[in-house]
Nucleic acid binder design. Structure first.
Lengths: 142, 142
DNA sequence: CTCGTAATTGTATCTTTGTAAAATTGTATT
DNA sequence: AATACAATTTTACAAAGATACAATTACGAG
C-alpha cells in the first residue's frame, strides 16, 4: 500500500491529523494515488507513522467528507472513483426517471390504471411523510 | 437465478447487508420473485455483487427471520409462501401496494427525497395520460 | 439399488476494518 | 498554580471478510 513516503513532524504546530490530510490530499490530487486504489488501513498507516490509529481514522474521515476517498467499515478505504463524466445532478435525476418508469411499466402490465397508481402513490407518500418528517440520512430499521 | 438487477452502493451510509435485504424484500413483495423460486446461492450473489458471501448470508438470514424466504443448509434458499389474503379485488390492490412500497424503498435508498419522487411521478404519469388517454391494460414495453 | 465420497450450500466463529465516545495529555491563559 | 480547551489516545463497538464446519445433494463403484 504505497503511502510509505508520508512523513509526520511531531514538533510541527500543525496537528498530526492535518498533516496526514494534507499529504494524502496531495498524492490524490497529483495522481500518485489513482481512483479505486486502496489506502493502507488506519492501523497499518498508524503503525508506520507511529501514531494512534484513531488519528489516522480522523484524517481519513475528513478526506472522505472532502470527497477524495471513500471509507467503508469492515472493507477499507479507497480513492474516490468519480462516478462518470457528465453532470452528477443530471445523472441522479436520470436514475430516478429510470426506476420510476420501470415501476409504472410494471403497474401498467399488472393492469392498474393511472388513477389507481396515482392514488396509491399519494397514499404511501403521505404515510412516509408522517413517519419520517423531512429528514435526511435515514437510518432505516423496523 | 434472476436477481441480477440488484445493485450495491459501497459509498452509501446504509450497510451492504441492509441494502441487500431491502432490494430482495422489494422483489419478493412486488412479485418479481414468486413463492417457491430459488434465490441465488450466497456465493453466487456474493460474486455478482463483489461482496463477501457471508454478508449475503447475513442478509438472507434477516429475510428468513422476516418470514420472506426460507434458507436451508445444504439445499439453498427459497421464496416463502405468503398467506393468500382476501378476495380477488383485495389481492389486486394489495399487489399494487407492494410494488409501490418497493419502488419507494428503492428511491429512498438512492437518497431521493419525498418531494423529488413525487415530482417525478407526476411528470411521468402526466406523460402517460397524454400518450394513452384513459386506457386500461396498457401493454407497454421498455 | 446401496453405499461412500465429493461437491454444493448455508452456518458458526474469529479476524480485520472503520466508528464513536470517554479519558488523557498538552498547551495556553488567567 | 488553576482552569479551559484542543488534540490525541484509550476503550468499546459495529460491519464486513476469512476460514473452518455441518447438512444436503449428486454421482459413481460395486
Amino acid at each position: 500500500m504505497t503511502l510509505s513516503d508520508i512523513h509526520i513532524d511531531f514538533r510541527s504546530d500543525t496537528a498530526i491529523t492535518a498533516q496526514i490530510v494534507e499529504q494524502v490530499k496531495g498524492r490524490v490530487l497529483s495522481g500518485q494515488l489513482k481512483p479505486g486504489n486502496q489506502l493502507p488501513t488506519v492501523r497499518q498507516l498508524a503503525a508506520e507513522l507511529r501514531v494512534n490509529f484513531n488519528t489516522v481514522a480522523r484524517a481519513y474521515r475528513i478526506l472522505d467528507e472532502l470527497g477524495l476517498i471513500s471509507t467503508q467499515q469492515g472493507r477499507g478505504t479507497y480513492i474516490w472513483e468519480p462516478p462518470e463524466p457528465g453532470n452528477a445532478a443530471e445523472r441522479r435525476l436520470h436514475a430516478l426517471t429510470q426506476i420510476t418508469q420501470h415501476f409504472l411499466n410494471d403497474a401498467a402490465l399488472m393492469g392498474f390504471t393511472v388513477d389507481e397508481i396515482h392514488a396509491e402513490i399519494e397514499r404511501e407518500l403521505a404515510r412516509r411523510l408522517i413517519e419520517q418528517p423531512a429528514e435526511k440520512g435515514i437510518k432505516d430499521k423496523e
